[in-house]
């Protein structure tokens, strides 16, 4: 599971991978094999496999899956922060995200294919089980979306369709 957290520690010397003056984050990615890349991110290291994998299993998640996972992690963490602010005890949170390329054949380089290899749409369901009214949870969800870096990046370029589902 991935956790995307950035801490502004306020120390004079910025931690590796983060510039304190203009709030940028840097990762360094190295080739470590024919089909994988290693990512160094502050004190973390993780491996990315294919750009987009069409196989059932792989040694490592693909870049597309990392992107979806990053969005999911962002949303979960954002919601948790809102819940903590409202002093709402959350029993469980889970998000399911599916991304669809505009044309996978374009990504594979099939000559004459129309469209593009980028993500056309991301659909998802955000499940929450908490001891709170539905209206309160919807308000937290709205606030989490408003403050989400990745949601607000992706929604400008991809058709994003996310549904909040409250589980009893």
């Amino acid at each position: 599971m991935l956790f995307f957290q950035v801490r502004f520690c306020g120390l004079p010397s910025s931690p590796r991978g983060m510039c304190m003056t203009d709030y940028t984050w840097t990762v360094r990615v190295e080739r470590v094999g024919e089909q994988e890349a290693k990512v160094f991110s502050r004190n973390h290291v993780f491996v990315v496999g294919e750009q987009a994998s069409f196989r059932e299993t792989d040694p490592h998640p693909s870049a597309v899956e990392y992107l979806l996972g990053a969005l999911g992690g962002d949303l979960l963490r954002g919601f948790q922060i809102q819940a903590a602010r409202q002093r709402v005890a959350v029993d469980a949170l889970e998000v399911m995200l599916s991304g669809r390329l505009n044309n996978p054949l374009s990504h594979l380089g099939v000559v004459g294919e129309a469209g593009h290899p980028g993500l056309e749409s991301i659909q998802g369901t955000f499940y929450v089980s908490a001891d709170a009214d539905r209206s309160a949870l919807e308000e937290m969800w709205r606030a989490a979306l408003e403050r989400s870096p990745l949601f607000n990046t992706l929604r400008r370029s991809v058709e994003l369709s996310l549904e909040l589902r409250v589980m009893l």
């Binding site: 059932e56 299993t57 029993d91 469980a92 889970e94 399911m96 369901t125 499940y127 089980s129 589902r165 589980m167």
Partner: peptide, 17 residues
């Protein structure tokens, strides 16, 4: 795990439920 994910999508429910 991929098989389980298909199950969950078929069920249309979160894994925690």
């Amino acid at each position: 795990k991929a098989g389980f994910e298909r199950i969950l999508q078929t069920l249309d429910v979160p894994a925690f439920s």
